[in-house]
């Protein structure tokens, strides 16, 4: 086990930012923590980094308790949301900074920096200042600065949020590849659930300081433990509706459902599990949103409105009356 977090709690002005969190991150794993803003995910990361002191609980990095260690002694690398590159130092000096602080000479450090910079594709900008390079390059410099000292754990705080949407895709893949190449245990914090699903080996969903669920992206997506996780993960967002069980059918939808007759229950339906043009459900298309490769249709049935994903080959218009079926795998039940 590379990182172990035990009964960790931190309050700010009486508010639990992190509330009794337990986590185990395996060696070499890319572990994402995702949650809405204010969920405590960044605080969790900062506690691991040692930038905040916990009120309670313990943190172990490769079996060593680091509770009382300074950030620099914890053997971590960290990339900040705004990268925090020293604007008055060149790229070379920025990357070498953790080595220089430990007494290395710039000439000695230079070889290591150049080698690492080549791997990150930034070997040509070493004598520039951070203000003179692009956002994507700044991020690579920040990555290089945190990797140069070969940390045991790599901490990334919303590393993609300062990048343009187009660059974000390539940067995401780059981080993933880098992480795999270095085999480095990584804790990755983001508010973007699709980013977490795409990049992580395993992930945790956080809300109000509490870990709601831990698992692989597939597990989280397919078997969300509760309504919060189900609603937070997935895009377009999950449909959450009330249905009434009548004769083994979830009225007003045509889904077979076992349960107490005549009781109203809450279910979730993934928008991508609604298949238009089949089945016995009937609805009116009330709105259409075109998104390139697919479209989102809003289906009105009784007083319920469902989001459904259409392939771009489906030809429907607003006002059309359509049939649809629901793939049972995409139906989620909540207690």
């Amino acid at each position: 086990m590379s990182v172990k977090i035990e009964d960790l709690s931190k309050q700010f002005n009486g508010v639990h930012a992190v509330n009794d969190v337990n986590l185990e991150i395996e060696k070499g794993e890319l572990f994402a923590v995702v949650g809405p803003s204010g969920s405590g995910k960044t605080t969790l990361l900062r506690l691991v980094a040692g930038l905040e002191a916990q009120d309670k609980g313990h943190i172990y990095i490769q079996g060593r308790m680091v509770d009382n260690l300074e950030p620099a002694q914890r053997n971590i690398g960290m990339v900040f949301q705004n990268y925090a590159l020293y604007p008055n130092k060149t790229v070379l000096e920025n990357i070498a900074s953790p080595l220089l602080v430990r007494g290395a000479r710039l000439q000695e450090a230079k070889k290591d920096v150049e080698e690492l910079a080549a791997k990150l594709g930034i070997q040509d900008i070493l004598d520039r200042l951070p203000g003179e390079i692009s956002g994507g390059q700044q991020q690579r410099v920040a990555l290089a600065r945190s990797l140069i000292k070969r940390p045991l754990v790599f901490l990334l705080d919303e590393p993609l949020s300062n990048l343009d949407a187009q660059v974000r895709f390539s940067a995401r893949k780059f981080i993933k590849q880098l992480q795999r190449e270095f085999q480095i245990t990584t804790l990755y914090v983001t508010h973007d659930q699709s980013e977490a699903l795409a990049i992580s080996d395993r992930m945790a969903v956080m809300d109000k300081g509490i870990i709601k669920q831990v698992g692989t992206p597939r597990e989280i997506y397919n078997k969300p433990r509760d309504e919060f996780v189900a609603a937070f993960i997935g895009s377009p967002p999950l449909n959450i509706i009330d249905v009434e069980i009548k004769n083994g059918i979830a009225y007003p939808l045509d889904i077979p459902l076992q349960g107490r007759e005549n009781s109203v229950i809450k279910i979730g339906i993934r928008p991508e599990s609604i298949i238009i043009g089949q089945g016995y459900n009937q609805a009116t298309v009330s709105e259409l949103e075109f998104s390139g490769g697919y479209s989102v249709a809003y289906l009105k049935i009784a007083d319920i409105e469902l989001r459904a994903v259409l392939s771009s080959s489906d030809e429907v218009k607003v006002g059309d009356s359509v049939h649809f079926a629901i793939n049972k795998k995409g139906v989620l039940f909540f207690e």
Binding site: P71, A72, Y86, R102
Partner: peptide
């Protein structure tokens, strides 16, 4: 975050002050 980065990099409080903060 500048000082936090310095802290993670291993700067002590005084070094962080005069090498990172003062130039900024």
């Amino acid at each position: 975050s500048f000082e936090e980065a310095a802290l993670v990099d291993g700067y002590g409080p005084f070094r962080s002050f005069y090498q990172v903060v003062m130039p900024l």
